[in-house]
Design a protein around this nucleic acid. Structure first.
Lengths: 225, 225
DNA sequence: CGGGTTGTTGACCAGCTTCAAGATTCGTGG
DNA sequence: CCACGAATCTTGAAGCTGGTCAACAACCCG
């Protein structure tokens, strides 16, 4: 079993502020889990007894709305944590987590996370700062959802995915979202997303080959009215 | 100057977990501020050097979107904190705070908040739990914004305001929002909000007298399709 | 090579926005 | 207390955006 001390993901989240002793304890009791593309990591309403850390792959957090549509709230890549909030507030999960490609996660039981949270000031403050930023993002996303057109949101989504998850030939992180994934993220009908993507293509803002979307004109994409 | 130790608002937020010594310190350096209805407490982009605690009155957090419309993100009543997030993450404010009626706030300088955050485990953990819940709310609001119709959102908004801020004849908290306030909260055009409110009235779900909206049939209001 | 999933396009329609005009209410100063 | 102007509310009509239904093409996978 690989040790947390050497995990690359360690650099990316609050875990880096744990003391050596705490880290060793985490390392000792963590388990590694694998999920296939499309697999459900946990479901809305599940009681979570621990936190997941993405070691490789990408997951999405979604919620099924009453009208039967899935709304994607967030995408999570290497080093990001799933289930942290539920564990902190001691509630059942508000969202479902689904693997977007084959994914490798480390699972750390609750105690090992909550314990340092109540005893290690540095860790606790770091987590606090992360949550504060997450909250700012959520608020801004809310505003975008309320005020921007589908076209604008879709352009943003395309740029976001490209910037955050696309890694070139050397790195093998090749996130390919279906049109439906995009529409769930943007909060629109699949056909609308498709139509807008077609138009972007026609306007030479992007090019596509199969599902893959490549940005051709970032400048203009940013300036979608 | 009244002392924090006896403030009613104290019971309502994380401040209750401060130690006596810390509380005394806060009490000593806090200042009370008054704002008239409509006054701007702080603006988007302002550097905040402290946290505000609502002692009496109601404030809203809003952001001006590029298309020139205000989006209301949250309403805050007695005991709630403004600016906490910005202070924690040490960023400029992401939102503007505006007084919805004449309001009385306590202003606590940064040090007095951040200091306990880094030294008082109980306080720190309590704030953490609050943020976690705020985040859950923000995510759910995002989903509502994406998936529900204007009519549903408006119904929710009316019920929320009524439940959270309406206090009967004895208590004098009489929050009266304009139609525009509602539309900014729901994220729609003012005329749309007006039209839908008219329809609610016609269907006997609510009654109105001037700006005031009174719920007549909560059951049905909850079941808006 | 089927069969299922995903992408694409057209047509139609409901919901919402916008512009515009008028009614009502509110606040302020005389 | 009234009068006036400003703000707010209300309603109508026109037009656009995006959602829905439907048909078909392309792709992927066993």
């Amino acid at each position: 079993m690989s040790r947390c001390e050497h995990c690359i993901a360690r650099q990316l989240n609050s875990i880096r502020t744990l003391t050596k002793v705490e880290l060793k304890r985490v390392s000792h009791c963590k388990t590694t889990k694998y999920y296939k593309k499309g697999a459900i990591i946990f479901d809305e309403g599940d009681a979570l007894n621990g936190v997941f850390c993405v070691r490789d792959g990408i997951a999405k957090l979604t919620k099924l709305s009453p009208n039967g549509k899935d709304q994607t709230v967030k995408l999570l890549g290497k080093g990001e944590l799933l289930g942290q909030r539920s564990v902190i507030s001691n509630e059942r999960s508000n969202l479902s987590a689904v693997a977007l490609n084959d994914i490798e996660l480390c699972y750390v039981p609750k105690d090992q996370t909550v314990d340092p949270l109540q005893n290690n000031q540095v860790f606790s403050f770091d987590v606090l700062q992360h949550l504060a930023k997450d909250l700012r993002h959520a608020e801004n996303d809310l505003i975008d959802m309320a005020q921007k057109t589908v076209k604008q949101r879709l352009a943003q989504a395309i740029m976001y995915v490209d910037k955050t998850f696309y890694v070139d030939d050397s790195g093998h992180l090749n996130l390919i979202l279906s049109r439906e994934d995009y529409s769930n993220f943007v909060g629109t009908a699949t056909e609308s997303a498709i139509r807008i993507i077609s138009q972007f293509k026609k306007d030479n803002l992007i090019s596509t080959q199969g599902k893959r979307i490549k940005i051709e004109n970032l400048e203009k994409l940013q300036r979608i009215e």
